[in-house]
Write a protein that binds this DNA or RNA. Structure first.
Lengths: 208, 208, 208, 208
DNA sequence: TATGAATGAGTGTTCATTCAT
DNA sequence: CATGAATGAACACTCATTCAT
């Protein structure tokens, strides 16, 4: 009846619960349609508590976005990919690309909601858009060319614009993921078979 | 004390103005963040007028979506593409594909906002999602395979799954459009050059 | 498409249709909950037409009320009752009272909706209340005492306050009508039998 | 930019204030004509606060009705009357009836607004009507016959249908109350005198 | 005279935000 | 620190009323 806390006292944990609940709701309904009361319920805190940590609703979005950007850009473009690339440095390029695809599919399956929020809200919030794209382009221009550079030098692949090549590859994969997610009924072949096929098309496409 | 009639009287036109304003606002801010007062202002009508034509705000979205679906699915997948394909039937496949890309870029430039609305809101509204995907998968499964069939028979290209090939091609194009829209600064080559390159990669990828 | 009338042109008739539709709707939902659009539809006219005849919605109510008051007060308290009383002047008083009851039940069955509107809206609109009660009290004080005066003089009934007696009788009848309308299931005896019983109670009650 | 909490915190009290304000306004203007903004002002709360307790305006009516029904049916038909009847069990029947009338007048004077709401809105809302009448008829059929039964057995009064007798008595009283409320100017005798007269009429009417 | 498209003040309702406890 | 009752600006939506045709 009196005001005051009941649950465990762990500010960091509470903050995290709120942020995670917010990401969940944002990804289900979008930022505008999500309500703070809903988020509070999902986080298991009182509505007022949210505002101790995030004075404005938009702060929730910003924090989520910053985390997402870090995850998406740093993790996606850098860490994870770098790892794959390094591990497979000596492997045939087919194997490298397949590993990349599988890695990306896993990434999207785990970080899907967050990614969704990024892409949805980026459209509407100039500040977020800039933040995201700045980070992204920074990393992309650094990392992407390296991936194919070595192979080009070895003469395995054509001397084409690396960005275009990589981006095309990404487009193929995303199109596959998107289609398998939303219109799975039109598929006639198995996922692994499909991955092979995509890699095959891509490699034939760019090889000398 | 209450309002009265003033402006021109043309129901059909008013309805259209409202719908167009709505699509514009929806695509700028998303459905939830858009307000009817804002839409009214953009349409140049009183707020109450909107509700004569669209009793619920969601009706605006639904109507926009139905129109969008018709445009996107029927027009995109069928009419326009069919035309391109027929016109270029005897042309080399490179030319066909380039024509398709240019046609799609034009389409997206003109119908961009509408398309954006579709993809945003589809995520959140089950009913819209079903409506869209049903139409889309219907058409895709009919049209897409025809595009490559002939070339396969002539032995120009590999005997691979047409859906995967086409989808990969679409993915490449969309990735290009998306990147050029949002991170244009990382581009090093000219659009037409890029189109040539994409077609080249794709054709090499699938040719026998 | 162009503005302009289609139907018969008969102002008086149109006006009447509107008023009747209004009374119907008012009695179904009350004045406030009734909408002019609903009334227009029920009257078979365009919404704007209503305001040619009744510039304000309240005018509809006022006109209905005036008609109702005329009907209810003049007709109920005066004409109809007078007629019954005159016809049965020489009849035994039991017969007179039964005739009155039957007459009143008929009246209410025919004029029910209008009566309902009177009693409902009277509560909220001071002006209507005054109009109604003024008329009513005028007539009641003139008519009511005459009904029993003669019988009193003949020594058939006690020399009690006529108003109280008559009002009690009216109360008995209205209670019967109300109960039969809303809780008919609790009745054990037939209507005519019940009328006999009420008259019997009343007459025994007032007889010397 | 948006509001904040200020006043005392007592949910139960706030809820009650709102309900009472609502009953007051409903009884003054009817449900439809009452506005939530008006109710909020009368209750001394912000408009939004109302909806924390009663998510829909109609919920206010329903809650008021349920309370009213309980009060009216349970209290009126059962508790209060039972008490009177028990207290006066050995008293002459005249005294019993007078006590009943006085008790009822007091009841209506105190609960008037609530009762008014019941009778108004019952006409328009099927659900309320059913709720009310169900409760009412349940109780009436249980309580009413008991009132006269004993007297019948003692041979003091005729062996007539108890329901009709009681209802007639209620009708007489309500007619008195109604008339005294709305057309007080036509009265020539004092209230207590009038009560005596009504009881006299009724008793003579039903005595053997 | 009748129409019905258009109006806009006003209604019920929502929700981010505040603050006494 | 956390609560949740309270707030009020803003929203979707209604409806009596006006007026060009």
């Amino acid at each position: 009846m009196k005001g005051g806390g009941k649950m465990k006292r762990n500010a960091k944990e509470t903050e995290k619960k709120i942020l995670e609940a917010a990401i969940g709701i944002f990804s289900k309904k979008g930022f505008s349609a999500a309500t703070t009361s809903e988020i509070a319920k999902a986080a298991g805190v009182a509505e007022g508590t949210i505002f101790k940590y995030y004075p404005k609703k938009k702060d929730l979005l910003h924090t989520a976005m910053k985390e997402a950007i870090h995850l998406f850009v740093a993790s996606m473009a850098v860490d994870s990919l770098k790892k794959v690339i390094k591990e497979k440095k000596e492997a045939p390029i087919e194997e490298l690309l397949k590993a990349v695809i599988v890695d990306r599919i896993n990434f999207l399956e785990n970080q899907g909601p967050l990614i969704k929020v990024i892409f949805y809200e980026m459209q509407f919030h100039e500040d977020l858009r800039e933040l995201f794209l700045e980070k992204l382009s920074e990393n992309i221009t650094q990392i992407v060319p390296q991936i194919l550079q070595e192979r080009k030098e070895k003469g395995e692949i054509k001397n084409i614009d690396s960005m275009v090549a990589i981006r095309s590859f990404i487009g193929m994969i995303l199109a596959m993921i998107f289609q398998r997610q939303f219109i799975p009924q039109i598929n006639k072949i198995e996922p692994m078979e499909e991955i092979d096929l995509i890699v095959d098309i891509f490699l034939n496409g760019i090889k000398r």
